[in-house]
Amino acid sequence: MNEPVSEIILSAQDVAKRFDTQAGMLELFREINLEIRRGETIAITGPSGAGKSTLLSLLAGLDLASDGSIAIAGQNTHTLDEKARAELRSRHISFVFQTFHLLPELNALENVVLPLEIRGTTQATDRAREWLQQVGLGARLDHYPAELSGGEQQRVAIARAFASAPDLLFADEPTGNLDEHTGEAIIEQLFQLNTDQNTTLVLITHDNHLASRCDRRLHLHNGKLQEWPQ
């Protein structure tokens, strides 16, 4: 008997992506099949230009596949219009970026409050404060991004991502802009929070060390996505 569908938070079936270019049709990848369960940590690796970011955009419902189907929390993204997909993302997905992308005019607390306010969450400030305390920035709530170090900024970004209690968290090279030591600490925190919150983490990275810490490692190469080690 199959496992309950609810356990699979993200699935992709026979997904292909093609682009119309001047030189003709370019197929970036095809026959991508993937099932990600709640609470898993997944690393997607691959050489530059393999299409990692494009795959992320499809998995996160930001773009639609040329062929195949992708379901987020059981909902097929192909059957939804842009507005419904945005709503789906808003309910289930958060992002952490390489360059943090905090709003410079908001202090740490306000940056974390923002997604909660957008979603209309009650007691947004209290929840945001708790999250900043969890990432060790309880004493720096009213500091602006320019007054924080790179590592601290990324921690604010992580708090912001977790604050809205996502089912899926996509992180694009989250340590790419940090030194090794800080990067290590950030990753530690990310994995810890992921475990605590039972969130599903999808990481895009070049860093083999980081990839090796994930439950599963998927390698995108020559248009194929393969479990690593095979």
Binding site: A86, E87, R89, S90, H101, L103, P115, I118
Partner: peptide, 16 residues
């Protein structure tokens, strides 16, 4: 544009 994309990523709708 970055700010707009961040706000969208945080759940804001295009209308908002």
């Amino acid at each position: 544009r970055d700010r707009a994309a961040v706000l969208l990523s945080l759940g804001m709708t295009a209308r908002q």
